[in-house]
Design a protein around this nucleic acid. Sequence first.
RNA 1: CGGGGUGUAGCUCAGCCUGGUAGAGCACUUGGUUCGGGACCAAGGGGCCGCAGGUUCAAAUCCUGUCACCCCGACCA
Length: 571
Amino acid sequence: MLTSRFPLCTIKETPADADTASHRLMLRAGMIRKLAAGIYSWLPLGLRVLRRIETVVREEMQRAGATELLMPSVQPKELWEESGRWGKYGHLLLRMQDRKEQWYCYGPTHEEVICDIVRNEIRSYKQLPLTLFQIQTKFRDEIRPRFGVMRAREFVMKDAYSFHLDQASLDATYQVMYDAYARIFTRLGLEFRAVQADSGDIGGDISHEFQVLAESGEDAIAFSEQSDYAANVELAEAAPPPPRPAPAQPLKRVATPTQKTIAAVTAFLGVGPQRCVKTLLLRIPGGLVALCLRGDHELNEVKAGKLPELQKGWTLASEAEVLAATGAPAGFIGPVGLRDSIAVIADRSAAALADFVCGANKDGTHLTGANWERDARLTRVADLRSVVDGDLAPDGKGRLKIARGIEVGHIFQNGCKYTEAMHVGVLDEQGKLQTPLTGCYGIGVSRIVAAAIEQNHDERGIIWPEPLAPFQIALLPLNMHKSEKLQAAAQVLYQELITAGYDVLMDDRELRPGPMFADMELIGIPHRLVLSDRSLDAGTVEYKGRRDAQPQDVARRDLLPFLTARLQVST
RNA sequence: CGGGGUGUAGCUCAGCCUGGUAGAGCACUUGGUUCGGGACCAAGGGGCCGCAGGUUCAAAUCCUGUCACCCCGACCA
């Protein structure tokens, strides 16, 4: 490809509203342009990268036994009413009407459509197990899109769905997909981790996320350095605490006139936050619930949301509700002496404390030497907190570290959630109608582009992992317009490289060398060849890898073998 | 949805407070010089000052409304 025929669209200045490295570099390199909030055009350069990822994903999906199809991006309301998600999916669903005023949505995911296809086309157990996938543009009307294509509203996703007669078959395919995902992200040259995950609204029991490790990631993941344990912090557990010691101190009331926060109370009383119990009062339909946590721990809302008491929704109690229920303002409430109608659910770590400090349910007062059972009613113990760095791993092997990641893949076992709702049935060997089990497997194709850049860039621009690079080789003939000799030599080399099977971008613009170098480094081409009258006279070509500190001269006649040793021929 | 902010040339922004012929840098076009790390000189093209109302002799500037976008939060296979 010649730069004169390939619009590079690079920009020198940093766009004002780009906050992360990948967003900034994708705009500067001319890969994407914003059309509206969370909606981007893919310019030619960006599209080449996107296609490279799609190719790897497609190859690995096929190798894993999945078959490609393509479903519509626009889906009728009726299908979503069958699954019950027209209402449940909420504002994420972009709804629209056609000329007949029929309602549709722009598909945020395709469980409904795939179930409709399978129930119409698949009749017999002989056709199962079946795994279908597509690479499609989806739309989720995120409340706050940000970071460019990392959290866009419109995005490209690979989604696969598998159908099974029994759990063993689902387990087997799930494992095949898990392995395929690991191979995909490895092939793409990304540093990633597979972690146990919450299955969220998709539903189901078993679920893993594939997280690309990056400081700017929106997810926190916990993993043990001495075992395989790795989980999203939404879900991660610590090993249970040791059993509660017996009470040793008497319950004592202390005046804490202005100490409303854990930090203030601990400083005032000279005890660590891990000796305190903080109490959160939640409003649920028809009542209140108290959740108790150790002072140094945070409530994990995903875990709390699974409590039976909170199934019908919850919010934090208002200041007025707290006062009415406990007689004290927030900051002074505690589990001791709460009225009987309020269930007291303590996190395992809080429940393991003896002689703790907590609010006295009286303005300006705390208690010391408080103890469960003796002083405070305990309805139930549950795992309610988020793990923190240094917690013991749940398998007892090693301590947990917390890192940040970008979720690029997510696999689920859904059981019969969708097939049941959508009335998918297949006849088994006995001629009996069975509801198949399903798995679903997503990869954020466009998000991977951003994730790869987050992991691979420097102050000059992007540094593409080889398999993602829009071009393999940048060929820069310097000041070619002034030298016919150089023009001829460049043309010959360009043709040679193409014939050898390389993906080459030759810069034939009448630019000074500086801007040429800068552009190629910005767009991250992994290998650079420079031709000049000087090198022509010396019979050499200058080579520099994108990560190399210094260029090197290679004899012209040795160039092809030199490249063969360094890079793969593209297909 | 709550809070904050911004809409002026392709991009980054000044001008607005205190109303009076719309600006700079970068980018673009042409000519010249230069040219192995984002050159220089000269000449040029480019604007419904987000949109709609209002006040005024006169509005980018003041007032009202509206739309879009950005940031923080809630939200998020």
